[in-house]
């Protein structure tokens, strides 16, 4: 029973190779709002399941295996996201890369609330980005970046929202992902830190490619209507509050 619960948790809080199922689950959710809800809720369910396993915190023998799998998963998905230009897929892969780090907190014996908050550092921006991707698809027929450049000029509000949200997803300060990553650094031994450094490099590369395809170039397609001021203000407000939560509760995010 414990193993089944752990396997189910590894699907919902993605760890390779079960992370493939997590990605399929998110992808099959209906519409952008459904996908956003899935990426918010599934990891939280996974965390609750983990903490129903009686052997949590995990035994030391299992910790090392999980650590290896988690670090592989996070690098694997970040590396794969490099060549993706479709915003929904990119978001899924990047979220998988970040969410898997939750297992390090589980292995370190952190309490359930700390782990749940940690998961939000990636699932909340991912959910927002999935919504923005849906809005982009409504206007362009697809959320594929790089075919039509210069969205910053034609869709200034939507592209600003996408830019900020993507920055939050790749752990840019002052968003919570940055502080959550500090916590992971803090929990690992020095000899295990190098994969995290590669991860930071891959995330940096990812955001560079994402923004280059999103913002730069000349748009030559049909005229498009940007998102409304109200929606943009709402999106910015959510991101602002998200960042503000870091400034107020830095200790919670960093675990220091």
């Amino acid at each position: 029973m414990e193993w089944i619960l752990l396997i189910l948790s590894a699907i919902l809080l993605p760890v390779f190779p079960l992370s493939w199922l997590f990605n399929r689950l998110v992808d099959t959710a209906p519409g952008c709002w459904g996908r956003a809800l899935a990426i918010l809720v599934l990891p939280q369910l996974g965390i609750l399941l983990i903490y129903t396993v009686p052997t949590v915190p995990l035994p030391t023998s299992l910790e090392r295996v999980i650590l290896l799998l988690v670090l592989f998963t996070t690098l694997f998905y970040a590396f794969r996201a490099l060549s993706v230009r479709e915003v929904t897929i990119w978001t899924r892969l990047m979220a998988s890369s970040g969410l898997t780090l939750d297992w390090i907190l589980v292995a370190a014996g952190k309490n359930v609330h700390g782990v749940q908050i940690f998961a939000l550092a990636w699932s909340l921006p991912a959910a927002l980005l999935l919504v923005w991707a849906g809005l982009l698809r409504q206007r362009m027929g697809g959320a594929y970046l790089g075919l039509q450049g210069g969205l910053a000029t034609v869709l200034p509000r939507l592209s600003s929202l996408m830019t900020l949200t993507a920055l939050a997803l790749v752990a840019t300060p002052i968003f919570p992902g940055f502080f959550a990553l500090l916590q992971v650094f803090h929990l690992l031994a020095v000899s295990w830190l190098w994969p995290l450094l590669i991860l930071l490099l891959l995330w940096g590369w990812n955001i560079g490619r994402f923004l280059q395809d999103l913002l730069f170039g000349s748009y030559r397609g049909e005229p498009m209507e940007d998102v409304s001021y109200g929606l943009a203000a709402g999106g910015f407000a959510v991101l602002f509050l998200f960042a503000l939560s870091t400034l107020i509760w830095s200790g919670t995010w960093t675990g220091i």
């Binding site: 450049g149 910053a152 923004l211 280059q212 913002l215 730069f216 170039g217 000349s218």
Partner: peptide, 8 residues
């Protein structure tokens, strides 16, 4: 942002 070179 109109110039792809700037982004590159």
């Amino acid at each position: 942002t109109d110039r792809p070179a700037a982004g590159r």
